[in-house]
């Protein structure tokens, strides 16, 4: 009883804290001055058509590095938690049905398209919406489909770990090259800028985002594999 009372008190407190804000604000007429600088300089200095990519990869690139590190830590934690379960929890009441003919044939048609689409998303991250995170997740969902269709029985952990650590190492190496050859850590301007709006433009931004895409894709595949197959 007292618990329910506390719940109601807490929710009313939160609501009375938050909902008066709704009346106080209105639509903004222009972006803040910091965002204005990012918008103008992201186009002029970096030649990035998608400014969100310029912010994620370069202006706030250190945050993205930390974020990828957190993702790695979470994936490592999940496989650590499930490590002891492989033998102990084998009283399976459910078993996986073998994949149907439709699923197997459909996966054979769809899998190459899904992987190519994922690579397309993260290579074109500086021109169109999308980028490393979205492309990586699309690749991970392709691997999920391959699990369902029986194309992959067991994830090759050596290969996935190699891709993940190589991508992470190259990410930091490209960031350090930015210090050495250009303005600072993760500055993409040490590669030729190219023509605005073409695939090979915006310096190292497509390279960095592709590395992020590979890293996120392998980490998400690792998470799915760990939570599926313990």
């Amino acid at each position: 009883m007292i618990k329910r009372f506390f719940t109601i008190i807490l929710m009313v407190f939160f609501a009375s804290l938050f909902f008066p804000l709704v009346g106080l604000i209105s639509d903004r007429d222009s972006v803040s001055s910091l965002a204005k600088d990012y918008l103008v300089q992201g186009r002029d200095d970096f030649g990035a058509a998608n400014i969100v990519t310029a912010v994620v990869v370069s202006y706030r690139g250190l945050d993205t590095l930390g974020e990828v590190t957190v993702l790695f830590a979470a994936a490592a934690g999940i496989s650590l938690v499930f490590k002891g379960l492989r033998n102990e929890g084998k009283d399976k009441k459910y078993r996986v049905n073998p994949p149907s003919e439709i699923l197997r044939t459909g996966a054979r048609v769809l899998l190459p398209l899904i992987f190519i689409f994922g690579v397309y998303i993260f290579i074109n991250g500086h021109l169109t919406p999308g980028g490393g995170f979205q492309g990586g997740v699309v690749i991970a969902s392709g691997i999920l489909l391959a699990f369902f269709a029986g194309n992959i029985k067991e994830l090759n952990h050596g290969f996935v770990t190699f891709i993940e650590s190589a991508a992470g190492f190259s990410y930091v190496a490209v960031g350090l090259l930015g210090i050495w050859l250009a303005g600072g850590f993760l500055d993409p301007r040490f590669l030729p800028m190219g023509e605005f709006g073409s695939l090979f433009s915006a310096g190292a931004i497509p390279v960095i985002y592709s590395l992020i895409g590979l890293k996120v894709g392998s980490e998400m595949s690792g998470i799915i594999d760990a939570i599926r197959s313990y």
């Binding site: 969100v52 999308g130 997740v137 998400m220």
Partner: peptide, 22 residues
């Protein structure tokens, strides 16, 4: 915010649901 929309559609409604179901 099409970037955020893509991420939310792929991760929030796709992978999270799958992980929950597993």
């Amino acid at each position: 915010s099409p970037d955020v929309a893509m991420t939310e559609a792929a991760i929030g409604s796709g992978l999270t649901t799958v992980v929950f179901l597993f």
